[in-house]
């Protein structure tokens, strides 16, 4: 039982990550693929933030006054790294979506198979 509670978050994160990976491979629609990449990225963020949690801890904002010595803080380092990851993730998503718009202008389709059919080089 303690193994289940201790590792439950990791398993769900793996399920979400695999859902994202499956979407990227199995779907031919380009917007769907971008959504899949987003799912994948969010699962990595969930993984890191979950690791930063300490049993009985609180948000890493310093408390002053009585009993401040006994306060346990969750680890702030994964939070900082994941803040950067979220912002970089939105930047890459924006470029991917701009590419999708550009492909739609050129081929009038956002389906991978239709684009490949029209492209004479493949």
């Amino acid at each position: 039982m303690s193994t289940f509670v201790g590792l439950y978050n990791y398993w769900i994160v793996i399920v979400l990550m695999m859902a994202g990976l499956y979407t990227v491979i199995a779907k031919g629609n380009l917007v769907k693929k971008v959504i899949g990449l987003n799912l994948f990225q969010t699962s990595v963020i969930l993984f890191y933030v979950g690791m930063g949690k300490v049993e009985g801890g609180t948000a890493p904002i310093l408390v002053h006054g009585d009993g401040a010595e006994e306060v346990v803080y969750s680890n702030p380092l994964p939070h900082v790294l994941m803040l950067t990851a979220i912002v970089v993730g939105i930047a890459t998503t924006a470029v991917a979506l701009a590419l999708v718009v550009r492909l739609n202008e050129a081929y009038d389709s956002i389906e991978e198979d239709e684009i490949l059919e029209q492209d004479p080089t493949t």
Binding site: K27, I90, L97, V100, N104
Partner: peptide
């Protein structure tokens, strides 16, 4: 951003044979 992309492109997934479901699984 995604809604903007949808308004500039298409709103529905056609579900053609572009992907590789078995390989993906």
């Amino acid at each position: 951003l995604m809604l903007g992309t949808l308004s500039l492109t298409q709103r529905n997934e056609k579900g053609g044979r572009g992907g590789h479901p078995i390989l993906g699984l």
